[in-house]
Design a protein around this nucleic acid. Structure first.
Lengths: 260, 260
DNA sequence: AGAAATATCAACCCTAAGATTTAGATATTT
DNA sequence: AAATATCTAAATCTTAGGGTTGATATTTCT
């Protein structure tokens, strides 16, 4: 069994002066085999080569291309159709999050594994939100990255145990704000009919439309709307609609199969 | 080392006829020790006792109370202040999700571990969303539940590897709809000034307000607004605001530290 | 039975909002 | 130098939106 080394271990640092300056592109044309095709992105040349060496030790993985720049990588992805893209998140030109989005745009099926040097729960949360299949820290043992690749190839999503808590704290926090609808809302002072009218307003209907849709006269609509204004303490249609949206308004007609 | 048995193993089934019918409440008054205080909720009496026996084998865990009904449990929670509540999700009277919400309302600090018989990604997603610290299947090895308790006590969040993929697929799916803002939005046809005006409208300001806030005349505001209507293909202020909100409008002034 | 809340509508008024046209001042691009 | 885009603004016009009062019918609560 191979030694389990640190992903960004100095062992993998190369002689920088040997390579040409500027954007680096590496291509491995070994396209016709059953190996898992992987493409790497990392603005740091040493890390890029380190990861490449690391992964290449595996028999079933083939690094078909690598780039120090996400824009270059996008073209390579179109050309080489890798199954997996491993991308650094902290990059100067195009950051990892936008890279993920644009890779997804090229081909939804490409599985993305995100890599960073340090544990940033916010970044992890956002990367996973955008559809990353795994998130690994460079400080983790190399076996983690290999495992991530293997799990992801099988269609699974892999988040190391050490990152789970951070992710979920962020995840749950992001819902806590929207859940605290306990702030006194004037919305429940509205009658059923008023809610129906407000619902129509949030659809962008004008008074004539609402009157026709509810089979009542326009003046009645105005009466309801005025009552709504009073209860919500607003001055016009737009403010009423904004109030409704900001206070999680859901018309009673639509309150079905919704727990939260 | 103890044998690792299935959580809902028949080994733990008791003689049902022995117990009184109806709601079951069990209390262990061993309050003054350093053990982790756990409260159990499960509408199935056999499961409840099984889990209790299972957990009681651990030296550092103390089941202070148990109930076959979430409502009863809520009162017991107030009385015994457990650090951890382990609750079944599929219960007739009060389902697990609302139970979680109400427990949180009693005391935000109580750590909740959710339990179900089968793997329902939707349910897992919603439970975690509501702040559960762990989610375990009854079909899993008992060591999983013990591990969950230990991790959770330490302030961590624990989701077994086998449930991670299901959770994330649901998680990512729930964002896919809101992320596909790639549907051609007319919003980027707006000029900077028009965006500023639209931004004011989404704050609920009327024309006079906008004029004052931007130090321009009201007629100029009207000109801008009319141009906005043309570009967004809407008829009035409310529709424009709704369009902006539904298409993820963020005024360029505010586009900082936000990738989404 | 009487009170209170709800839903309906009319008639009135008034102004903010929306439509249209024209035009001057800058700035950028070709 | 000419064309284009943007921001500004005035003049004019029309209507939808918003405020008020008062009235009738229905339901619900007490």
């Amino acid at each position: 069994m191979r030694t389990d080394v640190n992903i960004q271990s100095k062992y993998y640092s190369f002689n920088v002066s040997d390579r040409e300056k500027g954007v680096y592109v590496m291509i491995n044309c070994n396209e016709f085999n059953a190996k898992t095709k992987v493409l790497l992105i990392d603005d740091n040349y040493e890390h890029l080569m380190g990861i490449k060496e690391l992964i290449s030790l595996e028999n079933d993985i083939d690094v078909v291309a690598a780039a120090t720049n996400a824009n270059i990588a996008l073209n390579l992805i179109k050309k080489y159709q890798p199954e997996i893209v491993i991308t650094d998140m902290n990059m100067p030109e195009k950051d990892g999050l936008t890279a993920i989005q644009e890779i997804k745009k090229v081909n939804t099926d490409i599985k993305i594994i995100a890599l960073t040097a340090y544990d940033d729960s916010d970044l992890i949360f956002r990367a996973m939100k955008l559809g990353a299949k795994s998130y690994i820290l460079k400080t983790m043992a190399s076996s983690q990255l290999i495992r991530a690749i293997h799990e992801v190839v099988q269609g699974k999503i892999y988040l190391p145990q050490g990152l789970v808590t951070g992710f979920f704290e962020y995840f749950q926090q992001s819902f806590k704000e929207s859940t605290k609808v306990d702030i006194p809302s004037y919305l429940d002072e509205l009658t059923y009919r008023e809610e129906e009218v407000l619902d129509m307003l949030t659809q962008g209907h004008n008074y004539k439309d609402v009157a026709n849709l509810l089979y009542i006269s326009e003046t009645t609509v105005k009466t309801h709307v005025n009552n709504i204004f009073q209860k919500l303490q607003v001055n016009d249609r737009t403010q009423a609609v904004l109030y409704a949206l900001n206070h999680g308004f859901v018309s009673k007609r639509k309150q079905k199969s919704l727990v939260s």
